[in-house]
């Protein structure tokens, strides 16, 4: 009960409760001694915090150091200038079209005849003929590129780890 009073009073002090609640709490503070006492206690603590938290001062050279570092830096162009939303939407559309066409193809080629035991047996993986895909030159090139990318990634990770390790 007291905690609930605290919560409501803090929200009232911080000015983050809605108008109706603010009016209700103001009335409670005016008419209820317990609320009035708690309010006085919290408001005193709040003023103490407001007036007492001090900011820390960095070294006198701080601005100079920042400006020296900034002198060697260029402002990057705004992200929206180099991230073209059309390209992002294009990539999303590509994947949506691919998924939809796969689904359409799968449903269009499935046999719904009465002699089939069930719809899912028609979609059995064992009936898929993947030999054409696995023997194609495209797949070999694709795999090779992936292996090279994997090695580059592993090299990057290992270099980072080496840098982190003390000499």
């Amino acid at each position: 009960m007291e905690q609930e009073m605290d919560v409501q009073l803090w929200e009232y002090i911080d000015g983050i409760c809605n108008e109706t609640d603010a009016e209700r709490i103001a009335l409670l503070i005016k008419e209820n001694a317990a609320w009035a006492e708690k309010y006085a206690e919290l408001i005193a603590f709040n003023s103490e915090i407001v007036g007492s938290i001090e900011l820390e001062q960095p070294s006198l050279r701080f601005t100079k150091n920042v400006m020296e570092a900034v002198a060697a830096t260029h402002i990057a162009p705004a992200a929206k200038k180099y991230i073209n939303p059309i390209i992002i939407r294009g990539i999303a559309a590509f994947f949506v079209v691919m998924i939809l066409s796969t689904l359409v193809y799968a449903f269009a080629t499935a046999s719904y005849g009465s002699n089939s035991s069930s719809f899912f047996s028609e979609l059995s993986l064992s009936k898929l003929d993947l030999s054409g895909i696995y023997s194609s030159a495209f797949l070999k090139v694709f795999m090779m590129v992936n292996i090279v990318l994997g090695l580059v990634l592993a090299d990057g990770v290992l270099r980072k780890e080496k840098k982190r390790m003390p000499a």
């Binding site: 820390e56 960095p58 070294s59 701080f62 150091n65 920042v66 570092a69 900034v70 830096t73 260029h74 402002i75 990057a76 162009p77 705004a78 992200a79 200038k81």
Partner: peptide, 28 residues
């Protein structure tokens, strides 16, 4: 920064880093 690291030297380095980053991405 000092609230995070509790070390004045590190906090100052981090604060500098913050201002440099803010400058770099000011256009954003």
């Amino acid at each position: 920064a000092l609230r995070y690291v509790n070390n004045r030297e590190v906090a100052e380095e981090l604060a500098q880093d913050v201002f440099v980053k803010a400058y770099r991405f000011l256009a954003d």
